[in-house]
Lab assay of single mutants.
Amino acid sequence: TFYNFIMGFQNDNTPFGILAEHVSEDKAFPRLEERHQVIRAYVMSNYTDHQLIETTNRAISLYMANL
């Protein structure tokens, strides 16, 4: 899942690491979701930090390219 992918960046001092920290603390994050459209919609609806949203979009693109 995307959640498992992004958790691989925990403790990294990178934008993906920052995203992983936010996702791990977000109890409502769709952890079992595999459809990138649902993940993107969730982030757009629940996150207000523009940098975090952009990082999510980049992470989703990388995740999709590696499926």
Rank of each mutant, 00 (worst) to 15 (best):
Q37H: 15
R40S: 08
E21I: 14
A41E: 14
A41T: 09
R35V: 05
I60Y: 05
D49A: 06
S45G: 09
F16C: 06
L19M: 04
L62D: 05
I18M: 11
Q51P: 05
D12R: 13
F2G: 00
T55Y: 11
V43R: 00
P15F: 07
F2D: 01
I18D: 09
I6V: 07
T1R: 06
G17M: 05
M44L: 12
Q51R: 13
I53A: 05
K27I: 12
F16Q: 02
E33H: 04
Y47P: 01
E33M: 05
T56N: 04
R35D: 15
T55R: 05
L52V: 05
M64G: 04
F9N: 01
T55F: 08
I53F: 05
L52Y: 04
Y63Q: 04
L52D: 04
G17I: 05
H22F: 13
E25R: 15
A28S: 14
D26Q: 06
D49N: 09
I18R: 14
N46D: 02
Q37A: 11
F29S: 06
P30C: 03
T48M: 09
M44H: 09
T14W: 04
A65C: 11
S45R: 10
L32D: 14
L19V: 05
E54G: 05
M44W: 07
Q37Y: 13
Y42W: 05
T1F: 06
D12K: 13
A59G: 03
H22Y: 14
L67W: 08
I39K: 01
Y63H: 08
Y47F: 07
I53T: 05
T56F: 15
N11P: 04
N57H: 12
T48F: 10
N46S: 09
S45L: 12
N11S: 08
N46K: 08
N66S: 15
D49P: 04
Y42N: 01
V43L: 07
H22R: 11
N11Q: 08
Q37R: 08
Q37C: 13
G17W: 05
K27N: 10
P15Q: 10
H50A: 14
I60S: 00
Y42Q: 00
I6Y: 05
L67N: 11
Y47R: 01
F9Y: 09
R31C: 06
L52M: 07
F16L: 11
T48E: 10
R35Y: 06
L19Y: 02
L32Q: 12
G17T: 04
P30W: 09
Y47K: 01
T55L: 12
D49H: 05
E21L: 15
G17H: 05
H50E: 14
Q51C: 11
L32E: 13
Y47S: 02
I6R: 00
Y63W: 15
P15A: 12
E25Y: 10
N46W: 06
N4M: 12
V23T: 02
E21D: 13
F9P: 01
L32F: 13
A20L: 04
Y3H: 02
Q10K: 15
E33D: 05
N66M: 15
S61H: 12
N11G: 15
L32P: 04
Y42R: 01
M64D: 04
Q51W: 14
I6K: 00
D26L: 06
I60G: 00
